[in-house]
Design a protein around this nucleic acid. Structure first.
Lengths: 196, 196
DNA sequence: GGCATAAACGGAACATTGTTCCGTATAGTC
DNA sequence: GACTATACGGAACAATGTTCCGTTTATGCC
């Protein structure tokens, strides 16, 4: 990102920073659905400025959580290397993903949304996380721990959906996610060389 | 529930009928999130009339799908009686529930919503369907087919969540729901401690 | 420093949708 | 036919996303 020819104006860069900070704070206090006006006010800019820097809400979300998404993506291979079994690594990685989703009000809802405003979010998750999930799935299949035939995208879609509505005292997605992962396991009647 | 003393005015009953018909049609063509004005226009009434008859959107949804919800509830005991095993009955009943949800655009989304407007929907599902699910779960636990510890409400919440975003060509909740149900199984030859 | 210009800004204005409210119309009754 | 409780209609208000354009300003050049 060198400072080449088309350098942005200083105020533009300053406002973009302010917007990211304001959005991060607003997301924490009011969820990722926080009204645009509120973010603009917190950042001390007009709404037009938000739309100029981040054409869709998804762009803003992706920018705010970029680091955390990267960290999650990079944790995949690490877990695979250090965990006893691919299936255990998959389970732990999914836990990371679930933690990421449930600690951000409304992110799971946004992730599943098929509204066009969230295309960027979908695309980014697809680019960074689905391949990681696929790697873990493949390893577990190769080790004979789980049955083949489940696509990474499908699994992540399901996990994302299960995380919707977390935060309500009466619903903890982690148990259900664990059931889902357990459901992947090879049935014991099938002779498989896998023994944990 | 007969038409006793406080009989409603004829035009009121007529409008309620018209609203139910219009809403049913609108739900099919535009999902249960269809704008209120659209339903009112289709029924040939003003929006005020909708709110008078159905204070919240959930009331309208419940009224429109009342028969189907009843049918689903009544199918539970029947399946339990005729199926080979409680777990099979549970699986088939969940399939019915999934079918019900995915054939109504947006119903799964509404079901999971914790917005106060949907309290009636929640309440009705809780009253009619959760006990049925609990009965099936208990029977399967008693038969030793699944592990105990999963609440009916939790399971239905999860299944409902998995059904969000169906209709998109690329996502079929049935496979994931099947995984979830499979995850409940209590493998007879594997001690519970082997779980990850 | 002063100036020209392209870049960026701000927020009014418009669009969509839910919800309320009250003046008006009318079904049922005597 | 008149009276009244009931019901109706739709204007009006509120919340929110999105666009648009007149105004401001940072930057490069003299």
């Amino acid at each position: 990102m060198t400072i080449t020819t088309p350098r942005k104006r200083a105020d533009a860069r300053r406002n973009q920073e302010a917007l990211l900070d304001a959005a991060a704070a607003a997301f924490v206090s009011s969820g990722v659905d926080v009204p645009v006006r509120e973010i603009a006010a917190k950042a001390g800019v007009g709404v037009g400025t938000i739309y100029r820097h981040f054409p869709t809400r998804a762009d803003l979300i992706v920018a705010v959580y970029h680091h955390q998404i990267e960290a999650c993506a990079e944790a995949g291979p690490a877990l695979l290397a250090e965990s006893g079994s691919p299936h255990a690594a998959l389970g732990r990685w999914i836990d990371l993903f679930v933690d990421f989703l449930v600690t951000k009000h409304g992110l799971a809802e946004a992730f599943r949304s098929d509204s066009s405003s969230f295309e960027t979010l979908h695309a980014h998750f697809l680019d960074r996380l689905v391949p990681v999930c696929a790697e873990l799935l493949d390893a577990a299949v190769a080790a004979g721990e789980i049955r083949p035939g489940t696509a990474a995208l499908e699994l992540m879609h399901g996990v994302g959906n299960l995380c919707i509505g977390a935060r309500s005292e009466t619903y903890d997605p982690r148990r259900l996610v664990a059931l889902l992962i357990a459901g992947l396991r090879n049935p014991p009647d099938r002779p498989a060389a896998a023994r944990v």
